[in-house]
């Protein structure tokens, strides 16, 4: 037996042995395994082709212009156009997402998991959050356009024309709202994974609820919460559809305010995904190269956040077994 498992086809191999050792042809099983295996191989192949296509397309710009591409303004000629304003816009939109959706989302998750009892109201909020997570992103754009832009219209009354509200703030809050349900759901999951024994240990020596949350629940759930928030940040940074509705246009190139200049918040906002959309629609190979280069910049940003999230999670999964 031991020998035949090593692949020694001796003449004494009986039918029984063959059956037990599985040497009888299991072609059906093999085909099935090949089928499901090739599914995942296909997905990975697409990823490779996509990245290869984009990077080779962007190569002339990346090698030819390098950092100059990042620091140059948007121009009407492809060879001169850079991504300074949209990069700056995307950065600040990310800041808004972090500042608005993280505290609110984590607070909501704490309420739902630690404070709220299992009642009709809680279940309604829960259902509502899960449904919000499934609302198409373009619909959030409608919310941004009709509510936030209108709100900021009044905020910058002396600014450019009738649509002064289409600022980085309006765009940032729209995407913060879009990210909120994902932040809540992932933070809730992380909080639910905190062992009940830790909470009991805290309560057992007379800690109050807020103390248990602060000293036991949040430290334990922090990596999970951080992973979820980074993933939602990555998603928000890559979103274009809601921003189109909020009103990002390429026509006005905007002033040359600095990266941290407050004046930019009164201007019409720019964002990388929108710039990519506009570039992609322009004819000519030179524009396609610039588009690909802008995509590489966006991908680096988004994948950095994603990879950080994945690494963080894997590290802690390993640590906690």
């Amino acid at each position: 037996m031991a020998l035949s498992t090593l692949g020694n086809h001796s003449v004494t191999t009986t039918a029984v042995e063959r059956a037990i050792l599985g040497k009888g042809s299991d072609s059906k099983g093999l085909i099935f395994k090949l089928l499901v295996g090739s599914s995942i191989a296909f997905a990975l192949l697409v990823l490779v082709v996509l990245l290869f296509d984009v990077v080779t397309g962007a190569w002339p710009v990346l090698t030819g212009r390098g950092a100059d591409f990042l620091s140059s303004d948007l121009r009407s000629r492809a060879s001169e156009s850079g991504v300074f304003q949209p990069l700056r816009g995307t950065f600040w939109i990310g800041v808004f997402v972090v500042v608005f959706s993280f505290p609110v989302g984590i607070g909501a998750a704490i309420y739902l998991e630690e404070y709220a009892g299992d009642n009709v109201f809680t279940r309604f909020i829960d259902l509502n959050i899960r449904n919000l997570a499934g609302v198409p992103s373009v619909v959030y754009g409608i919310l941004g356009f009709s509510i936030f832009v209108k709100f900021f219209d009044g905020f910058f009354p002396n600014s450019v024309g009738q649509h002064a509200g289409k600022t980085t703030a309006a765009a940032g809050i729209t995407l913060a709202v879009l990210a909120l349900p994902i932040v809540i759901i992932t933070a809730s999951e992380a909080i639910r994974a905190v062992p009940q024994a830790l909470r009991e240990g805290g309560y057992g020596v007379g800690a109050t609820k807020s103390q248990v949350v602060r000293t036991q629940v949040l430290p334990y759930a922090a990596p999970g919460i951080l992973t979820g928030t980074l993933l939602s940040l990555a998603r928000a940074l890559g979103e274009a559809a809601p921003l189109i509705l909020v009103g990002a246009v390429q026509d006005k190139l905007g002033g040359r305010t600095g990266f941290f200049d407050f004046a930019q918040f009164g201007e019409q906002f720019k964002a990388l995904p929108i710039t990519i959309t506009n570039f992609a629609g322009r004819p000519g190979d030179d524009w396609q190269e610039v588009t690909a280069a802008a995509i590489v910049v966006l991908l680096v940003l988004v994948l950095m956040a994603n990879t950080a999230a994945i690494l963080l999670r894997n590290r802690f999964e390993k640590k906690r077994g």
Binding site: L44, L50, V54, L231, G238, A240, I276, L298
Partner: peptide
């Protein structure tokens, strides 16, 4: 790796 694919923004897929 699948999660990286999940993180690719839709504008990039549009361009592709």
């Amino acid at each position: 790796t699948l999660e990286i694919l999940a993180g690719i923004p839709s504008v990039v897929l549009g361009f592709f």
